[in-house]
Design a protein around this nucleic acid. Structure first.
Length: 287
DNA sequence: CGGGACTCCTGAGGGC
DNA sequence: TGCCCTCAGGAGTCCC
């Protein structure tokens, strides 16, 4: 499930291939996504040029000439791949898990030498086209909190923000208005690294722990990006490659297994909160 | 404000 | 081998 690191990797790979390229055609292969893809809207960018590819939290923004912006969210299973031999053959690197990924293709953007395809198995992702709008004017991106790796996200910011909230720290970190880019996996990992119980009330976290939490989040984000993100079930980047941060998981999807902290022999637990899994070590992360 | 419940969707995995 | 069931998850909406 793409979180900040996976989206960042996707953005880099997109940027590498489509920057300064001219869009020759846009084809809707399957309009059903979170928001329906409309031919009339997307045909507006025919003949336009890609000027910039950026990322805000888990969103990708593609700036296109004539003041158009494509807003992309990968949802759970959204991904891009390239068709380089436009005649028929799928680029060999994209036989992920030995499966051809054509089945859930939704949108094709054709460039001179290749096609860019958006594929999304569970259809939780979306692609929207805006004109004359900056990300601050787009509802999805206007209220996002600071990026974990930005200098604005520091001990002072987090202390002030946590003091306003009664929610559990798990839910606090999942709320994109407080900090943007984290999802279930990295929140669980960051809380474990910080020795904070996921259900601890936000305002009850001690100053020393807040400092550790800030450092842990930044550390995990940096490392995950370096390792190409995490690959769980379906995530592959646009090169068809898998990330490897999943080998670093200390708690996520490890319920029933031993805690990896030195000298701790507790068993990692899994619980449900707000319909989402929380994973934690009951000994290392006390309330 | 917060905390639920519910929705979208498909494939994996368990039970039998 | 296969069918039926449950579950995972981001984000939005709606209700209390």
């Amino acid at each position: 499930m793409p979180e900040l690191p996976e989206v960042e990797i996707t953005k880099r790979s997109l940027s590498k291939h489509i920057l300064n390229q001219k869009i020759e055609a846009v084809t809707i292969l399957n309009p059903k996504l979170r928001y329906r893809l409309k031919k009339k809207i997307f045909s507006q960018i025919n003949g336009k040029k890609i000027l910039k590819v950026t990322r805000k939290s888990k969103y990708i923004l593609v700036e296109i000439s004539s003041h158009y912006t494509l807003l992309i969210h990968l949802g759970m299973t959204g991904r891009f791949y390239f068709l380089k031999d436009k005649t028929k053959k799928i680029e060999t690197s994209f036989y992920a898990n030995n499966k051809i990924l054509k089945k859930h293709d939704h949108l094709k953007i054709s460039f001179k030498k290749f096609d860019l395809i958006y594929n999304d198995i569970r259809k939780f992702g979306f692609i929207k086209l805006y004109k004359n709008k900056s990300f601050l004017e787009i509802p999805h991106t206007s209220k996002l909190g600071p990026e974990p790796l930005s200098s604005i996200f520091n001990k002072k910011y987090l202390t002030n923000k946590l003091n306003e909230k009664k929610v559990s720290i798990k839910n606090f970190l999942m709320n994109q208005q407080n900090i943007s880019g984290l999802g279930n996996i990295y929140v669980n990992e960051a809380l474990y690294m910080s020795g904070i119980h996921p259900l601890l009330e936000s305002k009850k976290i001690k100053p020393i722990k807040i400092e550790i939490l800030v450092r842990s989040i930044k550390k995990i984000m940096k490392k995950a990006i370096l390792m190409g993100g995490s690959t769980i079930e379906n995530y592959h980047n646009s090169e068809g490659k898998t990330g490897s941060y999943q080998s670093n998981f200390k708690v996520y999807d490890r319920d029933g297994q031993r805690c990896l902290s030195k000298g701790c022999k507790s068993i990692i637990k899994r619980k449900l909160e707000m319909g989402r899994s929380i994973y934690f070590c009951p000994k290392c992360q006390r309330i």
